[in-house]
């Protein structure tokens, strides 16, 4: 079986490969800092396997993670100048290969989707080939590997390591933002452990006027929205707000249809995801990937959709569920 841990090892190996490229780049402004950051990050992906299995102490990984943050915070991972093709070379190559350039890019989703759909029947004996708990992740990683091979065969780069060399350029433009989604997810766990959820829901319920259905619907939807903005994730907000208002007030007291209340409530939370830097993998990493000057540029573009949609969700719940 291809376990999801194999995917994490592939990611770890890539980070280490990028780190060694940086280590050998004499012109890099922060050669030592940047290569240690990416190298250490890569090692963490391997070590994480045993932490996840409970067979290695987690605090060592904790020390390493804080080390990564320290390297990033002291500005040691600024990116170097990677040599790549010139705009003129790219135009010439685009003219030469034409639409064939799209083939590797389209191979990724194609292979992924085929594998996801075929996963239930892909078995050796009774063992599934793809990790059944993480089919999409494993399928995406395989899709990416196949697409890389297709690209190398099709485009015949002079250096067979071209894919790794060229992706270092993209990685360095993402920079420390690559670590942020994982740090936020840790913060979410710490928030939950420390009881931030209960504190917020006490606060929110205290503000709610008793006996008004409209007020209860608004507090539930807006509460999910605000909570998602703070936690960066609707999944963390949902159980807490539902325990505070969704179930006791909207369903039990006002006899709302639970399927409608909960489905629309979750979507009100998603409006919050559009507005928050805490949802780094959706909002900050893409800004870095696109090399935007304003790292909040994606959020700015989404605000105009998030707020009207929150109003629509509140209205839909009020009119459909009761």
């Amino acid at each position: 079986m291809i376990n999801v841990e194999a995917v994490y090892w592939l990611i770890g190996a890539l980070f280490i490969a990028w780190a060694s490229l940086i280590a050998r780049d004499a012109n890099h402004p922060h050669r030592l800092g940047a290569s240690s950051f990416w190298g250490l990050l890569g090692l963490c992906f391997f070590y994480g396997t045993w932490v996840q299995a409970g067979t290695a102490p987690a605090w060592i990984l904790g020390v390493a993670v804080l080390g990564l943050v320290a390297l990033a915070a002291t500005g040691r991972i600024k990116h170097g100048q990677t040599k790549t093709s010139t705009p003129a070379e790219r135009e010439a190559s685009a003219a030469r290969f034409g639409n064939r350039l799209f083939i590797p890019a389209l191979t990724i989703p194609l292979v992924t989707v085929v594998l996801v759909l075929a996963a239930p029947v892909l078995k050796i004996g009774s063992t599934p080939i793809l990790d059944p708990k993480n089919t999409t992740l494993v399928a995406l990683a395989l899709g990416a590997v196949v697409a890389t091979i297709v690209a190398v065969v099709l485009l015949k780069p002079k250096n067979k390591l071209g894919p790794v060399i060229e992706s270092r350029r993209i990685l360095e433009s993402i920079g420390w933002a690559a670590l942020l989604p994982q740090m936020l997810s840790t913060l979410g766990i710490l928030f939950t452990k420390a009881g931030v959820g209960t504190a917020v829901s006490t606060l929110v319920t205290g503000l709610m006027p008793k006996g008004s259905l409209l007020a209860a619907v608004i507090v539930y939807c807006v509460g999910l929205f605000v909570f998602t903005v703070l936690m960066g994730n609707g999944f963390a907000a949902f159980p807490i707000m539902t325990a505070a208002i969704g179930w006791p007030v909207l369903v039990q007291q006002f006899h709302g249809n639970p399927a409608i209340v909960f489905a629309i409530g979750m979507l009100a939370g998603f409006c919050g995801t559009l507005c928050t830097p805490m949802a780094a993998n959706f909002n900050l990493v893409p800004a870095a990937l696109l090399e935007m000057k304003n790292k909040y540029g994606v959020i700015t573009a989404q605000l105009g959709t998030a707020f009207p949609l929150l109003v629509v969700n509140t209205a839909l719940m009020y009119f459909l569920a009761f």
């Binding site: 999801v4 994490y8 592939l10 990611i11 890539l14 963490c44 992906f45 994480g48 932490v51 996840q52 102490p57 987690a58 605090w59 060592i60 990984l61 904790g62 020390v63 993670v65 804080l66 093709s85 790219r90 135009e91 685009a94 003219a95 290969f97 350039l101 590797p104 890019a105 191979t107 990724i108 993480n134 992740l137 995406l140 990683a141 990416a144 590997v145 890389t148 690209a151 485009l155 071209g162 894919p163 790794v164 060399i165 060229e166 992706s167 270092r168 350029r169 993209i170 990685l171 989604p181 994982q182 740090m183 997810s185 840790t186 913060l187 766990i189 710490l190 452990k193 993998n281 990937l289």
Partner: peptide
Amino acid sequence: EAFGSGFASSRSVTIFAVVLPVIGIIEYFG
């Protein structure tokens, strides 16, 4: 320990790294 296990259990969000090599090389070719 919380930072360590948080990192280990959230490695899936960094999955975007696996598509960078193919994207890098096709960008190089225009």
